[in-house]
């Protein structure tokens, strides 16, 4: 069986729709290691947040850290599209531009544990991107900036790179980031505090609805300076504590 050595690249001549790319990237079955993450839910519950507050936790993220993630992804996408579309940047310059976006994200993500987890998750996406869009200049540039043991790029920057490579529009990218965060919490909830599994999907849709008012503005961002800078300090404290525990189902 030599399937593993002959990856099939998506055809560039027949562009895929943003809807298709979104579905694939939002699918929990996508093999990027997402199943070991709970979007901060396990740290929150271990930190004492009552399970009844999970819907509120989800909405809280929509108005804070998810804005940072989505804004970062959009600006990374913009940089990647600009840098490749007009052929103005070489891979090295593009890597520098992506690193600038990454630094803006890091400055808005004070918890080291949260940053580490994002970078480790990004490596799963890097692997996927390097297989599916190996030749794309933004993917090549992102790999330059992601050589372990040096700092690897964060997950939202990688999502922006993939959006540029795959042809995902900026608004869809924002909605993807929002949905993925909420759905990660919903799926982890069923393992941590089991309940009727038909209920959490309603929370996910409520979170997505709550994000709609931000979508247009976030999708229009082009500068790293303009990425929102909301924080969730209690959640970050939980993440820090979780990174030091020896009892966890989820990485974070």
């Amino acid at each position: 069986m030599n399937l593993s050595t002959t990856p099939l690249s998506p055809p560039l001549s027949a562009p895929l729709s943003s809807a298709t790319i979104s579905m694939m990237l939002a699918d929990a079955r996508l093999p990027v290691g997402g199943h070991v993450h709970s979007a901060g839910l396990e740290p929150a519950l271990s930190g004492g947040m009552p399970a009844a507050q999970v819907p509120g936790y989800m909405l809280g993220r929509v108005r804070t850290v998810t804005l940072v993630e989505a804004g970062t992804a959009v600006v990374a996408r913009h940089v990647a599209v600009q840098g490749t579309g007009q052929g103005v940047f070489g891979a090295a310059q593009l890597a520098v531009a992506l690193a600038t976006v990454d630094r803006a994200w890091a400055a808005r993500t004070p918890s080291r544990a949260v940053r580490d987890v994002s970078r480790s998750l990004a490596r799963g996406y890097q692997r996927l991107a390097g297989t599916l869009w190996a030749e794309h200049p933004a993917v090549v540039a992102s790999a330059l900036g992601s050589t372990p043991p040096g700092p690897t790029l964060s997950r939202p920057v990688l999502l922006g790179v993939i959006a540029a490579a795959a042809g995902l529009d900026a608004e869809s990218l924002v909605r993807l980031v929002v949905y993925d965060d909420a759905q990660t919490i919903a799926a982890a909830m069923l393992k941590l505090e089991p309940l009727d599994p038909a209920i959490p999907p309603g929370w996910v849709l409520a979170a997505c609805a709550a994000a709609e008012e931000f979508v247009t503005d976030l999708a229009a961002l082009t500068s790293a300076d303009a990425i929102p800078a909301w924080g969730a300090p209690e959640s970050e404290g939980w993440a820090e504590a979780h990174s030091r525990t020896t009892q966890r189902l989820f990485r974070a």
Binding site: P31, H35, H37, R127, L249, F250
Partner: peptide, 16 residues
Amino acid sequence: ETGACPHTAIRDDITV
């Protein structure tokens, strides 16, 4: 970590 899915981490999604 395996996210409570040890079988997934060694077979279906071996990324981590």
